[in-house]
């Protein structure tokens, strides 16, 4: 079924280090439009590093490997070029921008992306309509849009705000980096519902999570298990359930018997 389509994201043999410490040790992953992928794995396995490298964060050294996004060499692009190309990262730790209202921020971001793609700035009415719909989808009031970006937001509000931004910017690929962590069950359902209802507008998701919980509400086509900088197992959604039932220790003791393991892990 894939063959007719061009893959959206191709990661080939990616090796990455931070401060001389190698974190990713050969990651391969291909995501086609219309797919939802989940990456699971214990803390320190390299999940968030992968997300950061894809988004273009500095401080990482690419040792080896290639990444293509929509046919273009992703690693050659600046973070803003990646965003303009349609790659979005929902941050695990969103950043506060004092004095800058959500509306100003969203409009600036949207218009910068449009400008990069040779489009006119969005007209005010369309913009406001899109933002209000997104806020409603995330259960956030209009007054939320007047507040300064992430300033004084609760942990749950910050996470919902990431998804709000995703809903307004409408990327091709959204990477959700532990968006579920710190969310209570109600907020989790709201987020999952928003992610599901935007699927289609947003072509593909890469969901990074430590727990299976979110995957009860967002059904992935593929689940990958990351361990010590590599994807060690891939499967369908039942893999997530298996992991949930058996824990990561199970991976270490059984599945990974052939892989060299550190003596202690958390």
């Amino acid at each position: 079924m894939h063959n007719a389509k061009q893959p959206l994201l191709v990661i080939e043999n990616l090796h990455v280090a931070v401060d001389d410490k190698q974190i990713l040790k050969g990651v391969d992953l291909t995501i086609y439009p219309g797919e939802i992928h989940a990456i699971m794995g214990p803390n320190g396995s390299g999940k968030s590093t992968l997300a950061a490298v894809l988004a273009g964060r500095e401080d990482y050294t690419i040792l080896q490997g290639r990444v293509f996004f929509d046919g273009k060499d992703l690693l050659e692009m600046s973070p803003e070029e990646r965003a303009a190309a349609g790659l979005f990262l929902a941050f695990q730790y969103p950043v506060e921008i004092p004095g800058v209202s959500m509306l100003t921020f969203l409009r600036t971001a949207l218009n910068e992306i449009r400008k990069s793609n040779g489009e006119e700035p969005i007209d005010t009415r369309t913009f406001l309509q899109r933002v209000r719909e997104a806020a409603q989808l995330l259960g956030l009031g209009n007054d939320f849009l007047q507040r300064a970006v992430n300033v004084g937001f609760s942990g749950g509000e910050k996470k919902r705000n990431e998804i709000l931004q995703m809903a307004v910017l409408r990327p091709k690929l959204a990477i959700l980096d532990e968006t579920d962590s710190g969310l209570d069950i109600d907020a989790l359902k709201i987020v999952a519902n928003a992610v599901n209802s935007l699927f289609g507008t947003i072509q593909s998701y890469l969901i990074i999570t430590h727990y299976q919980r979110l995957l009860n509400y967002i059904e992935p086509d593929y689940v990958h298990v990351m361990y010590d900088g590599k994807i060690v197992r891939s499967g369908d959604k039942t893999l997530a359930l298996e992991l949930e039932a058996k824990g990561y220790d199970w991976l270490r003791s059984e599945t990974l018997s052939s892989i060299e393991l550190p003596s202690t892990t958390t």
Binding site: G56, E80, A83, I97, V100, F105, A109, Q165
Partner: peptide
């Protein structure tokens, strides 16, 4: 900070515009 700039860059806002946005926010009061 780098974090702030990267956050804005990731949303498609180039660094120079990001700085202007941050400074305007800082000066808003």
């Amino acid at each position: 900070g780098e974090d702030m700039l990267f956050y804005l860059n990731q949303r498609g806002i180039p660094t120079e515009e990001a700085v202007a946005l941050i400074v305007n926010g800082f000066s808003e009061e």
